[in-house]
Amino acid sequence: MNTKVLPRKKKEFSKKKKMAGNSEDPNLEGSDDSAEEEQQMMLGEPSIGVGVEQIPPLEIPEMSLDPEAIEIDLTHRRVEKIEGLESLRCVEALCLRQNQIKKLENIGTLTTLTEVDVYDNDITKIENLENLVNLEILDLSYNKIRKIENMETLTNVKKLFLVQNKIPHIEKVTHFQQMTMLELGSNRIRKLQNLDALCNLDSLFVGKNKISKIENLDKLTKLRVLSIQSNRITKLEGLDALKNLEELYISHNGIQTIENLDNNLELTTLDLAGNRISRLQHIVHLIKLEEFWFNDNNLENWRDLDQLNKATSLATVYFERNPIAKDPRYRSKVKMALPKVMQIDATYCQQV
């Protein structure tokens, strides 16, 4: 129960009050109740009594659902159970974000659904979705799911979000041949596997897991974005077949050497921040680079910046918290080495 304490004068403690506090007469100023109230005030605890207004909890009004509605948004409405949706005949998008739902249920009749969002609930199992054959977008992020399962009939899903769950394995995804985006960040995955059938995958996000090796990606020839940040990668490898890769995010790992990017000529963004790399090398051929993030590494040699000279579209570079950044002329030297760059770290060049 929320409480609002009204303004009141600060009470002064005196020997008289302390002595009166030992009296059994409740009418005395220093009675036990008063002493207890004063103690609560000293401890910063709200007291409920004279001068205190109790504010009732916010009541969320009931929502009447239009049977013809195309979109239903029940975000943050303290929903504990999915129910009462059977009347929806045309609904295509159902949003149940930030509620207290523990189970996926009672939506099997909503076969017109193309998008379901139950982000940030208390769901522990993927179930009861087999009838939603038209589903294209499914967001089950920020729940307590431990296994990818029970989605074999959802062959039309294009985007699947399972961020921040408790999933240890990539499994039972071979039927997602239409999928273009798979988001598995912040789970407990240790190995990249069982992805061969995802031939149309455009973007794969597996950051903040426990992956120690880049592998088993050869069949993902349409992959354009790969994010594998904050894992346990120590070697840059396994990317040879990804000739269409445009964005590679592999920051905050344990990589020591830039290598094995010979076939990734389409790269426009390369994020190698937060690794243990001391030299810029083997990237002179990446002439389409627009963004190069290399902060928090061990770069000491200014001449290594020549590796980026042929990237004529390079607009942004990050080198902060490298040894070269300690140079008093750090920004001017970066600009001299890469004259077409428009942003150095978080500062635009016209502000340098």
Rank of each mutant, 00 (worst) to 15 (best):
Q343R: 11
G84Q: 06
D202Y: 07
I55G: 02
V173I: 15
N260M: 08
D218T: 07
T124H: 09
I277S: 04
H252G: 06
P328D: 01
K102D: 11
D73L: 06
N143V: 03
D262V: 07
V317S: 02
P26H: 05
E71L: 10
S141T: 02
G44A: 09
M179C: 10
Q40R: 12
D218W: 06
W293P: 04
E237I: 05
T234D: 12
G108E: 13
D304K: 01
P56G: 08
T112Q: 09
D345L: 07
N131E: 12
I250L: 06
G108M: 12
Q164A: 15
I60V: 08
D218V: 05
I324V: 15
N263D: 11
T347V: 15
R276W: 01
D33S: 13
H285K: 08
T269S: 14
L94R: 01
E83A: 13
I283Y: 04
K213S: 10
M19S: 13
T111V: 15
R329N: 14
E115L: 09
L28K: 09
V157I: 15
Q98D: 14
L162Q: 06
P323F: 05
L198A: 06
N216M: 02
S227H: 12
A20M: 14
K335Y: 00
N309C: 13
K219E: 14
D33E: 14
T174H: 10
L6M: 11
R329I: 08
G185D: 09
L226D: 02
I70M: 08
K10N: 11
Q351A: 15
R329F: 14
K103Y: 03
L195E: 02
K17F: 08
L129A: 03
N216I: 02
L160T: 02
Q307T: 03
I101M: 08
E127C: 08
E246S: 12
Y330C: 04
N165L: 10
N134S: 11
E290P: 01
K333Y: 09
I48G: 08
K335P: 01
V118T: 04
K147M: 07
M41D: 13
N295G: 11
Y119S: 07
Q193T: 06
L242P: 00
K103L: 10
K9R: 11
E37S: 10
F205I: 07
E115W: 04
G49N: 09
I60T: 04
L338Q: 00
K125D: 09
E183H: 15
H169N: 14
V352G: 10
D306K: 06
E127G: 07
L28W: 03
L314G: 00
L182N: 01
T316P: 05
E68A: 13
R303G: 14
K158M: 12
P323I: 01
F294I: 03
K166T: 03
A69F: 03
